[in-house]
Simulated scan of single mutants.
Amino acid sequence: MFMPTHFDLDCLRSFVAAQEYGGFNRAAELLNRSQSAVSQQLRKLECQVGQPLVRRHGRRLVLTPAGETLFAYARRLLALNDEAMAALRGHALAGQARLGVVGDFAETWLPETLALFRRAYPQVLLEASVDRASALLDALDRGVLDLVLTFGGDGRADALPWRTLPQRWIGGDGLCFKRMEMVDLVVLPAPCRFRQGAIDRLEAAGIPWRIVFTGRSVAALWAAVRAGLGVSFRMVGELPPGISVMDDPPGVPRAPDVRVSIHDGGRPASDPLVQLKQMLETPPALIPAVG
Score class of each variant (00 low, 15 high):
148 V>W: 01
165 L>T: 07
232 S>N: 09
98 R>M: 12
203 E>T: 13
6 H>R: 15
281 E>D: 11
4 P>L: 04
11 C>P: 02
124 V>S: 12
37 A>M: 13
118 R>Q: 15
212 V>R: 04
109 W>L: 09
281 E>V: 06
177 F>L: 12
94 A>Y: 00
65 P>E: 07
151 F>L: 11
42 L>R: 13
238 E>C: 08
86 A>Q: 11
63 L>T: 14
228 G>C: 10
262 I>P: 00
225 V>N: 04
114 L>D: 06
201 R>Y: 00
147 L>M: 00
261 S>N: 14
93 L>I: 15
136 L>M: 08
26 R>P: 02
59 R>N: 13
253 P>Q: 13
279 M>S: 07
43 R>H: 15
290 V>E: 09
24 F>P: 01
6 H>N: 08
57 H>W: 08
245 V>K: 13
86 A>D: 13
58 G>Y: 07
71 F>K: 07
125 L>F: 06
131 D>V: 01
234 R>D: 15
79 A>V: 00
50 G>D: 06
48 Q>E: 12
82 D>H: 01
86 A>F: 00
106 A>P: 07
284 P>T: 15
213 F>A: 12
106 A>W: 06
218 V>G: 01
170 I>W: 02
110 L>D: 04
242 G>A: 08
51 Q>N: 04
125 L>V: 12
216 R>E: 15
47 C>S: 13
95 G>P: 10
253 P>M: 11
87 A>W: 02
243 I>A: 06
132 R>N: 05
149 L>P: 14
154 D>L: 11
136 L>Y: 03
127 E>Q: 14
225 V>E: 10
153 G>R: 04
88 L>K: 14
14 S>H: 08
77 L>G: 01
171 G>Q: 04
77 L>N: 01
18 A>K: 09
192 C>L: 04
4 P>W: 00
46 E>K: 06
32 N>C: 14
21 Y>A: 11
71 F>S: 09
7 F>L: 06
105 F>S: 07
236 V>H: 03
5 T>M: 12
78 L>F: 03
79 A>Y: 01
117 F>H: 11
19 Q>P: 09
277 K>Q: 14
157 A>F: 03
238 E>M: 10
20 E>T: 13
267 R>E: 07
179 R>K: 12
238 E>H: 14
287 I>Q: 07
91 H>V: 15
273 L>A: 06
270 S>M: 08
155 G>I: 00
